[in-house]
Design a protein around this nucleic acid. Structure first.
Lengths: 352, 352
DNA sequence: GTGAAAGCGCTAACAG
DNA sequence: CTGTTAGCGCTTTCAC
């Protein structure tokens, strides 16, 4: 890229000074520039194809017009369908708000505080954290320093919890609802495939909801009906094989992708869904209505999460103080065929 | 973030000048700084938690250490499993190479040249384009100006084709291989669900491979056995319903996600897979082995594509001239059960 | 109304 | 070996 056009050149061509160019191009209010000069500048900029140098702008303004997104457990991006939807939403809404998006993916093994460099190096104006980790030790520190941060999913550090802005979902409640659905269908031996404990905060809630629902229905919590996976179908498949030995009549999978794996294991064992085993998932990923059989699940809108997160972050970056620190997104029980109940027809396969 | 630590402060604390600090921190070769000074500087920087200001560095060096990723047809990010894998790979390898990643998603309706601003505003040092569009009019211009660009997927502008670096796959060959597989199984009425023509360059190849395979086997190309969808399961479902009327004995879906939708339509029609209709897909997404039945498909490694793309881009950004303008990634026919052939056991459900 | 000039934080040529 | 200095391209205060 040779032709680096600077504001200087625009000024020259328009026969004015750089100041004027800057005023015109940034629409500064208080300096009433005659329409004619204004037009000249605009025209010159247009003709030269002038685009202001981002670095220079950042340096002088201190703003980068960039939002950082940190995705922990990055492998899931490649394997589950929820995070990509989130990313899509985050990206679209950032762009709409006039921000660029810097994506940082961190593996389980990487150092957790990678994003610190992004903020300390003044790469970004705000941060969205997608999968909080138990060891996100620096996040509270950022919040304390009033750096704009929004967490997606419910954060579990009791420490700073009410200082932190987050958009989440009442996972325990939603889990209990779908468990209740299974229980009402008469199931007593309900298995659960969940996520490795300790690591996944946001998902520990599922496990908890599972327990509570059981308790409230006076059903026994059986350890051997619970198996651990990660976000992948493969892990669901393996976990289901283990759990199958203990003859569940229903399974609640920690997410839909896991449910896909679980369904495969059930089919492979020669059992039918839902006649022999009912299956329900969580998330309502786009393929859920098209599985065999269509999957009963909890709809949680990734798109809404993303939109809300950017909305909050925007305000934070403008320096607003928000009274409400958290937003709870709605969830909805979507009954299809994998649970054995009569599907709610219009929700079965909807335009998404 | 109040505490903005500058190199000045580090210099002060270490009792040296900013130059020295700069030299030490950037490991400049030719200025042999005594170990003792060096240590002092390092220590001061450490203690102050110094992180160089990105904007200042960019401004003076002209380098941003940032790679831009443009994803066209951004909706697919939320709906298909291939692009997220690509993104994951791109992100990981960028980071390994020491680059940040700026993500730009563009909808079908948005202006196609959004990325132009990224390069003209000096936001990025290099660009990866994920879904090329028919109207990427500015891309050739960038290439002509020697801006580092790598395209993922085979670009179809005959104009500048051999100036452009890309990593792709021989889609026509791979398509013909899986079609051949179906034909060898005895199928004569093979349907194809493809992507809207004109818009999706990378996928027009599938259609072409389909035709050629038919031709070579002396089978008739029947227009009513071909339907159009986009990347989603939903579109596959709808397209399959149309095509079903014309009694195919097999379907080749443009990608695995479409295949999921197609399978749902087939099941809903009361037909069995593969006994009544064989189904094959393309991509080998992570859930493909866990569908009902497990999907026969063409494996194309998104991870490899991403890695190779960043590899090339890195060299380009270093100013290297590459003799080889393109890289062809391998594909592999993965036979599972949806096609009715005997599965290749060890490929059926592999650790991915 | 418009221009001159200072300075954002950093690098690197040039002195000393 | 280390410090002084001149910009990188832009915004913005302050004079003219």
């Amino acid at each position: 890229m040779k032709m680096r056009v600077t504001s200087q050149q625009v000024a020259l061509r328009a026969g004015v000074s750089r100041t004027t160019v800057s005023f015109v191009l940034n629409n500064i209010q208080n300096s009433n520039i005659p329409e004619i000069t204004r037009a000249k500048v605009l025209r010159a900029a247009e003709e030269l194809g002038y685009v202001p140098n981002a670095a220079a702008k950042m340096l002088v303004s201190g703003k980068t017009q960039t939002i950082g997104i940190v995705v922990s457990h990055a492998q899931h991006l490649a394997v589950d369908a929820f995070i990509p939807q989130l990313l899509y939403s985050l990206s679209q809404h950032s762009q709409e708000a006039g921000y660029n998006l810097l994506l940082e993916t961190v593996l389980d093994v990487s150092q957790p505080d990678a994003y610190l460099e992004l903020v300390q190096g003044h790469h970004i104006d705000g941060l969205v954290v997608v999968n909080t980790r138990s060891d996100d030790s620096q996040l509270p520190e950022l919040v304390r320093r009033k750096f704009p941060v929004v967490v997606l999913g419910f954060p579990r550090w009791t420490a700073l919890q009410d200082e932190l802005h987050y958009v989440a979902t009442d996972t325990v409640r939603a889990t209990k609802e779908i468990m209740r659905h299974l229980i009402d269908l008469g199931h007593k031996r309900i298995a659960h495939i969940t996520f490795s404990p300790e690591v996944y905060y946001a998902t520990e809630d599922r496990h908890q909801g599972y327990r509570q629902a059981l308790e409230e229905a006076n059903l026994e919590y059986r350890k051997n009906l619970v198996a651990y996976g990660n976000y992948s179908a493969e892990s669901g498949f393996i976990a289901m094989q283990k759990v199958l030995k203990h003859k569940p009549t229903a399974v609640f999978a920690g997410n839909d992708t896991i449910a896909i794996g679980a369904m495969a294991a059930i089919h492979q064992a020669g059992l039918r869904i839902p006649q022999d085993i009912a299956v329900v998932g969580y998330d309502d990923i786009p393929t859920a209505p098209y599985l065999t059989p269509p999957l009963t699940t909890v709809r949680v809108s990734a798109l809404e999460h993303g939109q809300k997160a950017i909305g909050i972050l925007e305000k934070l970056m403008r320096g607003e103080e928000l009274a409400q620190k958290s937003i709870d997104c709605e969830t909805k029980l979507i009954v299809r065929q994998s649970c054995g109940a009569k599907p709610n027809a219009q929700e079965s396969r909807v335009e998404r």
